[in-house]
Amino acid sequence: MPIGVGEVAPDFALSDQHGADVRLSGFRDIRNVVLVFYPFAFTGICTGELRALRDHLPLLEGADTAVLGVSCDTMFALRVFADREGLTYPLLADFWPHGAVAQAYGVFDEERGCALRGTFVIDRAGVVRWTVVNAIPDAREVTTLVRAVEELPR
Rank of each mutant, 00 (worst) to 15 (best):
V101A: 03
R28G: 03
P153N: 05
S15Y: 06
L92I: 08
A125T: 04
F95Y: 14
L57N: 07
R112L: 12
E151I: 02
D11K: 14
A148F: 04
L14Y: 05
I45Q: 13
T119G: 11
D16G: 09
A135Y: 10
P2T: 08
G4T: 13
R124P: 04
R31S: 04
A13P: 01
L24E: 03
A77H: 00
G99N: 04
D64V: 07
V107R: 07
V142I: 15
E85C: 13
L116N: 08
G99E: 04
G99D: 03
G118W: 02
L152T: 03
I30E: 14
E7H: 07
P90G: 10
D64F: 12
T74M: 07
A125V: 04
D94C: 09
W130L: 06
V80N: 11
T47R: 07
A139E: 12
T131L: 15
Q17M: 05
F37S: 07
L116K: 12
F27W: 08
P2L: 11
V70Q: 01
V127A: 14
P153R: 13
F40C: 02
V70Y: 00
V142F: 10
D138Q: 14
R112S: 01
W96G: 05
D83M: 00
A20P: 01
I136Y: 04
P97M: 08
A13C: 12
D94A: 09
I122F: 04
P10Q: 14
E111V: 09
V5K: 12
S71P: 04
A93N: 02
Y38V: 12
G19A: 13
A102W: 02
V33E: 01
Q103D: 07
F37V: 06
V127L: 15
L145K: 11
V34H: 06
V5M: 14
R28N: 11
D94I: 02
D73N: 14
G126N: 06
L145I: 14
V36H: 13
F37K: 12
T74N: 06
V149M: 01
G48F: 02
E151P: 01
N32V: 00
Q103W: 02
Y105M: 06
G4L: 12
L50R: 12
L50H: 05
A63W: 01
